[in-house]
Design a protein around this nucleic acid. Structure first.
Length: 277
DNA sequence: TATCAGGCCCTAG
DNA sequence: CTAGGGCCTGAT
């Protein structure tokens, strides 16, 4: 068990923020997370955290996974004092961090995400893991399923019944290309230029501008990538009719995007709770 | 029943 | 190159 006090870190916000789909709040203040072939349970009380793993695994893997070395207070401090909307959004989501997820996992999950709700994305991802992922067990006896690798997802016929819809062929082709060496994930990680990365990603079947930006932000940790989906589009039209001040947030625009997106979906969920008490 | 959801592909002009 | 139709699926 690893105990830490961490500011600008809130697992509930991250779990709801839509950047990872295998993190769940199982009970108030209790979270479970599956990432690649690892599983972790966490308890949170305000800024205190109990990670159910050893110090070595925490320092060697999870600390970086949760991006704990980055100063998010510094990002928030850069928000314009008169930008009341972004100030409020950042206040609402100040515990969000951009996780350092596995590139392959992000590519698959965000191919699924297109034209899709978070709940259904989760279902699809879990189904893929259950059917094609390696079965694992923690020392305490908790059974979970790892994210299947490219070779396991390369056959389009096997994906047919996974409820992916038309996205199954995108995933199958991507998986086959990676498994058979036509596409190198390691190469994608080495590209310096963001524009170049974007070009190579959008060349992938099924990856458009929005999904490419998500892969860059969440899978390659290019935190100035700024995915524009229908939510962000509406927010920009409404609150930034003269344009979002991208220059102000050079190097962290993606963090601002997350604050705005989270703020928007939180309001939506609050509205839904008001409607059905 | 029709519409919608965190798009993308493909074709026509 | 841009606009617009079609697309899997489950929820409302």
């Amino acid at each position: 068990m690893v105990e830490r006090q961490i500011t600008y870190f809130d697992l509930g916000q991250i779990a709801r923020s839509g950047q990872c789909f295998r993190m769940y709040e199982t009970a108030p203040g209790r979270f479970s997370l599956t990432a690649m072939d690892r599983y972790l349970e966490i308890r949170q009380e305000d800024d205190r955290f109990w990670f159910d793993c050893g110090e070595e695994e925490f320092d060697g893997f999870w600390a970086h996974y949760f991006d704990l070395e980055t100063d998010y207070g510094g990002f928030i401090a850069r928000i314009g004092k008169r930008d009341r909307y972004l100030q409020a959004a950042a206040a609402a989501g100040s515990g969000i961090r951009i996780l350092n997820q596995d590139l392959w996992e992000v590519m698959v999950t965000f191919l699924i995400s297109q034209n899709n709700h978070i709940r259904r994305i989760r279902q699809c991802v879990e189904r893929l893991c259950l059917h094609f992922g390696e079965k694992k067990e923690t020392p305490e006896g908790h059974v979970y399923y790892a994210m299947p690798g490219p070779a396991a997802l390369a056959d389009p016929d096997r994906l047919k019944d996974m409820g992916l819809g038309y996205r199954d062929r995108y995933i199958a082709r991507l998986a086959a290309d990676v498994a058979e060496g036509r596409l190198s994930l390691e190469h994608l990680k080495t590209i310096r230029s963001r524009k170049q990365t974007h070009q190579e990603l959008t060349a992938i079947y099924g990856v458009g501008d929005k999904v490419a930006d998500c892969i860059q932000l969440f899978g390659l940790h290019q935190i100035d990538a700024f995915p524009v989906d229908t939510w962000i589009k509406k927010i920009l039209e409404r609150h930034y009719p003269k344009g979002f001040p991208m220059y102000r947030y050079r190097g962290c625009a993606g963090v601002m995007q997350q604050y705005m997106f989270y703020y928007a979906i939180s309001e939506k969920e609050a509205g839904e709770r008001r409607q059905e008490p």
